[in-house]
């Protein structure tokens, strides 16, 4: 049933200090599908995602079908709590249980964070390690829509492949919306490119 539902965006508009960022954006996402968005920097991709996540309000237009959808996200910035360890950051969003903890440890291990790294404060980890923690965190929370905003930046090819494989396993028919600058990630994510910001790519 949920697979037939859609998120419909109509005439979305957003501007900052008179500078239009989104102008009459229309889109439809079928739940259960995987989508990718590409476009040059500053064309409004992140603004669009922020509106979808409810972090900002649009100036005009409507979004239908987002009600009651559980979101999860890998943000453009890692947004980890600096005083917590890698494992604590991941568990912060998850339900408290030993099974969850084991799952978190397994996921972190799969992305190359050993026991020592898992118990380190995140602000002592490298940028790439922090990015992996942010990816695992997004997979620890129950979600219907997973949003990835340049989630693999700073990762080498092998780690990126591991991260995508893990995301692929966790998605299990749920919706993915990924912003990327790397066209090579599209087939790996099995995502279809939405031409929302294509004009900006062509112009850029």
């Amino acid at each position: 049933m949920i697979g037939k539902m859609q998120i419909t965006i109509r005439q979305l508009e957003k501007s900052y200090a008179g500078q239009s960022v989104l102008c009459g954006l229309d889109a439809t996402f079928t739940l259960g599908e995987r989508y990718a968005l590409m476009g040059r920097s500053g064309c409004g991709k992140t603004t669009f995602l922020r509106i979808l996540m409810g972090l900002e309000r649009q100036d005009a237009g409507s979004i239908d079908g987002m009600q009651n959808l559980r979101l999860s996200a890998v943000f453009q910035q890692v947004r980890l709590c600096p005083s917590l360890t890698a494992l604590e950051n991941v568990l912060l969003v998850a339900e408290k249980s030993s099974a969850t903890k084991q799952r978190a440890e397994l996921f972190l291990e799969r992305l190359g964070l050993d026991d020592f790294a898992r118990k380190k404060r995140v602000d002592k980890l490298s940028g790439g390690q922090q990015q992996r923690v942010a990816i695992v965190r997004a997979l620890m929370v129950p979600f219907d829509l997973l949003i990835l905003d340049e989630a693999f930046k700073g990762l080498d090819e092998s780690t990126r492949a591991d991260a995508i494989a893990l995301i692929d396993e966790c998605l299990q028919g749920r919706t993915l919306l990924a912003v990327t600058h790397d066209a090579a990630e599209l087939p790996l994510l099995k995502a279809q490119l939405l031409p929302l910001f294509q004009k900006s790519v062509e112009n850029g």
Partner: peptide
């Protein structure tokens, strides 16, 4: 940014206060 993260992940208030 952390507060936005907490909102998206629906982190309960007591955890938000602590972390």
């Amino acid at each position: 940014q952390l507060l936005e993260m907490a909102k998206v992940f629906r982190i309960p208030l007591h955890r938000k206060i602590k972390a």
